[in-house]
Simulated scan of single mutants.
Amino acid sequence: MFNRRQVAGFAVAAFFAVSSVGSFVSAAQAQEKVTVFAAASLKNALDSINAAWKATSGKEATISYAASSALAKQIESGAPADVFVSADLDWMNYLKDKKLIKTDTEVQLLANRIVLVAPADAAVTADIKKDFDLAGLLKGGKLAMGNVDSVPAGKYGRDALEHLGVWKSVSGNVAQAENVRAALALVATGEAPLGIVYETDAVAEKKVKVVGVFPDNSHDPIIYPAAQTAEAKSADAGAFLDYLKTAEAKTLFEAQGFTVLPAAAK
């Protein structure tokens, strides 16, 4: 017969055995789920597409949203992403140069535009052209933008303002945010009277309105590439990337204001 101490020892051992098996199963299940690192401006569209993919396939992606620059640096540092969707070509090329992307899987997926936004109840309009009076429109307030050195939307915005000859007049009044959605929030909450964001961000936020659209020739084309990472582990990475190119995904992207590029159409 076992004494009470022996029985208790068996119970503890059994508990840790079951716990270890549970942890192993959880880790295995987590590995099977595709992990996507995507630009913050894609959140509404990709959340909808992920739900549609789950309804179609029974599978679901884990999606992390942030500035493309931050995500690229995380991948460079070894973060376990299977798919990367960038808001510009620069950060995809950054990872390609370091051989951290499967180049044969890359697709130029989407196009976008940058716009000037204000709080929805603001009485302001802008005729965006050479030497327009952006400083006068700000009236001493801040211009919300993504970080102009690293965040794609911020870089496009600064390039456009430089091309139009107005960057110097407002550069001292720029509130630089960690990503474009953070810049959008500054305008939506009234902390900044104006901001430069993607057109799709303006569609996603009802508390702002578009007061002007930047000419396409004032900045480089806004292209969103997508690709599998070199260290992709999930067997579903390719399937999720393929789903982004389907007619169903195209409809959901377009509902958020994106332009689906011909190379991505299936």
Results as ranks from 00 to 15, higher is better:
F2Y: 13
R5S: 12
A8S: 10
V12H: 01
A13G: 14
Q29F: 11
A30H: 11
A30N: 13
Q31N: 13
V36F: 05
A38Y: 04
S41N: 12
S41D: 11
A51N: 15
W53F: 15
A55Q: 13
I63H: 04
A66N: 15
A72E: 06
K73L: 11
A81H: 04
D82L: 01
A87N: 05
L89N: 11
D90E: 12
M92I: 12
T105H: 04
T105R: 07
E106T: 14
A111Q: 07
V115G: 05
A122E: 08
D127W: 03
I128R: 09
K130Y: 09
K130V: 07
L138D: 03
G140Y: 07
G146Q: 10
V148N: 14
D149W: 00
G154H: 00
G157T: 03
G157D: 07
D159C: 05
V166T: 10
W167H: 05
V170E: 02
S171A: 14
V174H: 08
G190Y: 01
E191K: 13
L194S: 07
G195V: 12
E199G: 15
D201A: 08
A202C: 02
A202Q: 06
K209D: 01
V210I: 15
P215A: 09
N217L: 02
I222G: 08
A226F: 05
D242M: 01
K245Q: 15
A247K: 15
F253R: 10
E254C: 06
E254M: 05
F258L: 08
F258D: 06
F258R: 10
V260A: 12
V260I: 08
